[in-house]
C-alpha cells in the first residue's frame, strides 16, 4: 500500500480511494444487473478510511495472519463496497469484480468467507455480525493479542434483537478491542427507518447498553480518521461510531432514494453515475 507522508495527503488519498470504490460499486452492480448500490455507496467513505487510512492492520498477501485486525461487514448486502476495497488492497485480482453475482463467481451476492480472501465471516442475514465480532474480540483477549475488531452495521439492521443481545455482551465483557460503526443513512427497504420501526435515539440506546458513543458525519474522511483513533483509545468498554450518511451518496439520483436500495443501474444510469463520480 502507498504510504502518504502527512495527514493532509493521507486524507486526499482516502478520498481518492473512496471515489474509486464508488465507481467500482456502480460498475459492478450494473454489470451484475442486480445488487445493492445504495447501502454500498453510503458506506464507501467509512470502508475507504478503514482499508486505506492505515486503520486496519491487515496483510493482503497473508489474509489469515493471526494478528490482523478483523473487519466484519454485518450489513452483508453492501458486499460491493467490501469487494472493491479488498481488490484495491490486493487481496484478489481486480478482474474478479466483473464476475459479481454470476454463477461460479467467488463474489457472491453476499460475502462468503469460504470463497474470498479477506472476508472474515459470511454475512447477509442481518443482525448477526456484531455477535461474531464479540466472539472474535473475546478470542483476541484470551490469546493476549492486540488486534481490534471492527464491525459495520446498518441502521435498519439495528432493529434486530440480536444486535442488542450482542451489545449487552460487548459491554458486559468490557470489550475495548471492539468498535462498531453504524451506517446511519436513515433508510431501509420499505422506507425511512424512522417510519418503519424507529431506532431513535440510537446514541442513548448504545450508551444505556454501556458503550462509548461517537456521532459523526460519515462522509468526512478527516473526521472519520480522527474518530477511529479516538475509538481505539477508549478503554474498558466498547465504542460505537454512529456515522450519519446519505444512502446512495455520490450519485445524485440515488441519494436518499429508498428505491436504490436493491436495484442495479441500467446502462444509461451507469453512464450518468460515472460522469458524476469521475467529475468530483
Amino acid at each position: 500500500m502507498q504510504n502518504p507522508g502527512n495527514k493532509e495527503s493521507l486524507i486526499r488519498f482516502i478520498e481518492q480511494k473512496a471515489r474509486e470504490i464508488r465507481i467500482d460499486i456502480v460498475k459492478m452492480t450494473a454489470k451484475a444487473g442486480s445488487g445493492h448500490p445504495g447501502g454500498s455507496l453510503s458506506a464507501a467513505d467509512i470502508v475507504a478510511t478503514l482499508y486505506f487510512g492505515e486503520v486496519l492492520r491487515v496483510k493482503p498477501d497473508e489474509p489469515d495472519w493471526p494478528d490482523r485486525d478483523r473487519f466484519v461487514l454485518s450489513k452483508g448486502h453492501a458486499a460491493p463496497v467490501l469487494y472493491s476495497a479488498l481488490a484495491g488492497r490486493g487481496f484478489f485480482p481486480a478482474d474478479w469484480l466483473d464476475t459479481l453475482r454470476q454463477l461460479g463467481s467467488p463474489l457472491q451476492g453476499h460475502p462468503d468467507c469460504k470463497k474470498v480472501p479477506g472476508v472474515e465471516v459470511s454475512t447477509g442475514s442481518l443482525g448477526q455480525g456484531l455477535s461474531m465480532a464479540v466472539g472474535m474480540a473475546l478470542a483476541g483477549r484470551l490469546d493476549q493479542k492486540d488486534y481490534n475488531v471492527w464491525v459495520l452495521l446498518g441502521d435498519g439492521e439495528c432493529q434486530e434483537g440480536q444486535i442488542w443481545e450482542a451489545a449487552m455482551a460487548a459491554s458486559h465483557y468490557k470489550l475495548d478491542n471492539l468498535i462498531a460503526i453504524v451506517d446511519h443513512n436513515g433508510l431501509q427497504i420499505d422506507g425511512r427507518v424512522r417510519d418503519v420501526m424507529s431506532i431513535d435515539p440510537i446514541d442513548d440506546k448504545f450508551r444505556a447498553f454501556g458503550w462509548h458513543v461517537f456521532r459523526v458525519d460519515g462522509h468526512r474522511v478527516d473526521i472519520l480518521l480522527d474518530v477511529f483513533q479516538q475509538a481505539l483509545d477508549i478503554k474498558g468498554k466498547p465504542a460505537v461510531v454512529v456515522a450519519d450518511t446519505v444512502k446512495g451518496k455520490g450519485v445524485s439520483f440515488m441519494e436518499g432514494e429508498k428505491d436504490w436500495h436493491g436495484k442495479a443501474p441500467n446502462p444509461g444510469q451507469l453512464e450518468e453515475a460515472l460522469k458524476q463520480l469521475q467529475a468530483v
Binding site: 444487473g33 452483508g76 457472491q108 462468503d112 447477509g124 442475514s125
Partner: peptide, 8 residues
C-alpha cells in the same frame, strides 16, 4: 431467489 445467493 437468484443473485442474492446462499444466505437468502
Amino acid at each position: 431467489v437468484g443473485e442474492d445467493g446462499a444466505t437468502h
